[in-house]
Design a protein around this nucleic acid. Structure first.
Lengths: 233, 233
DNA sequence: GTCTATAGTCGGATAGAC
DNA sequence: GTCTATCCGACTATAGAC
């Protein structure tokens, strides 16, 4: 994106910055894990600059302010999320758009949740920016809005629709109930991202490796099946 | 606690500070919601001092440093938690200490979770310091250790033991499984504290009042029953 | 014990050389 | 476009009057 030749004060996209896109991306990539670990206020521009291999004023030059960089990080994360979860989401959405049996919905739901589990809990390289997403859950700023509208809202909505389809019911009341279930389902995964330290201590785990990931996945499978089973109430 | 006469450099407890306990408590009470909302780094001593009705150096005088005040807040929270959840926890522990039928365990578990739900999600005055607890879940400092050992660990352990008792089984493998279930159960509540903003937007709620609290409680009841039902697998 | 005044440090942002 | 040097504001912590 943003095909820029190496050196020239070229024309801007539309009121947007259009400086050296390479160093911009370096800075964003370096900033995301630092912001994710320490938050907007605590993370220093000097720290970020060092990690990116540039000098401190470079951040201000490229982004205008630390907060702008923060927003740029949120946007970059949305992009990465779409790359990583896009195909899974599309599969599920496709299934929903056709008529979709309860069992088909259940299978799609399990596949989607397994993908989400791997994505949020495992995924060594992604681990960095999951911290960013989860941290922003408790904030109310601009970045939080971006992440909510592009990640949390569509993600949980998709899960909710699959749950509803698995119940073989429709209607607004059912949808709200399904949304609540979807939220609780996703929050279970957050326990292993946001609260990873606490979780590991409680479970006497010293790492979340493949063996632990399997246990989490199994627990999530139980959860999904429990939710689906409620259709017969 | 700490019965101090109004003015005198009285004897210290044991190596501990023993200044004017009243203003100490005022500062702690003012600091907890601010730390909870903004975190250790972002919260300023001036801000806290103003909220407490004292001047900024008073904090340093009474606590030595901002970080010491932070630890004092964590300890105060543990105290409040024990006051508020103590009787419920004791009831459950009592039930466990005697021989305890599966159904008795299930009932105690539901009662405990309902109490926890009200405590974490509702509870207007407590809302302040729930932010503190949840924020520290992702940290690894001294305060995090205090809260973990005095709140998270014993709390989830109790839930895990009740789950195990409701399964009518014992053994280490069952205990780890029960701990995992307990963790997921508690993490569902965190969705409405830490992620309150996100949750409300997803569910189209504009507040978490009695009606919403009932829905959450019902969902938690479903969850508990689902977990217990698995004993027959 | 509580205040005012201030020291000392570190943060983000800016100016200007190259 | 990227560097060095620097400003200015905010912060915690300390010194000392009352």
């Amino acid at each position: 994106m943003r095909t820029a030749t190496a050196s020239s004060t070229q024309a801007k996209g539309r009121g947007e910055y259009a400086k050296s896109s390479l160093t911009r991306e370096n800075i964003v990539a370096a900033a995301i894990p630092i912001f994710g670990a320490r938050g907007l206020d605590s993370a220093g521009t000097r720290e970020i600059a060092e990690a990116a291999g540039v000098n401190q004023p470079a951040i201000n030059y490229h982004f205008g302010s630390k907060e702008n960089l923060y927003r740029a990080c949120a946007e970059a994360i949305v992009e990465k999320y779409r790359q990583q979860m896009g195909s899974l989401s599309l599969d599920a959405a496709d299934a929903l758009s056709g008529e979709c049996s309860a069992d088909e919905a259940r299978k799609q739901l399990m596949k989607l949740m397994e993908g989400l589990t791997e994505f949020l809990v495992s995924g060594e390289h992604s681990q960095n920016w999951v911290g960013f997403i989860v941290r922003e859950m408790s904030e109310q700023g601009d970045a939080a809005r971006i992440l909510h509208e592009s990640i949390w809202k569509p993600g949980t909505d998709l899960v909710a629709l699959l749950i509803q389809a698995s119940w073989n019911k429709s209607g607004d009341i059912q949808l709200e109930e399904a949304r609540l279930e979807a939220l609780l389902l996703v929050s279970n995964l957050v326990a292993f991202t946001n609260g990873r330290t606490v979780s590991m201590q409680i479970l006497d785990w010293d790492a979340i490796g493949p063996a632990q990931l399997d246990k989490i996945k199994q627990a999530m499978d139980y959860r999904v099946n429990d939710i689906v089973r409620r259709s017969s109430l």
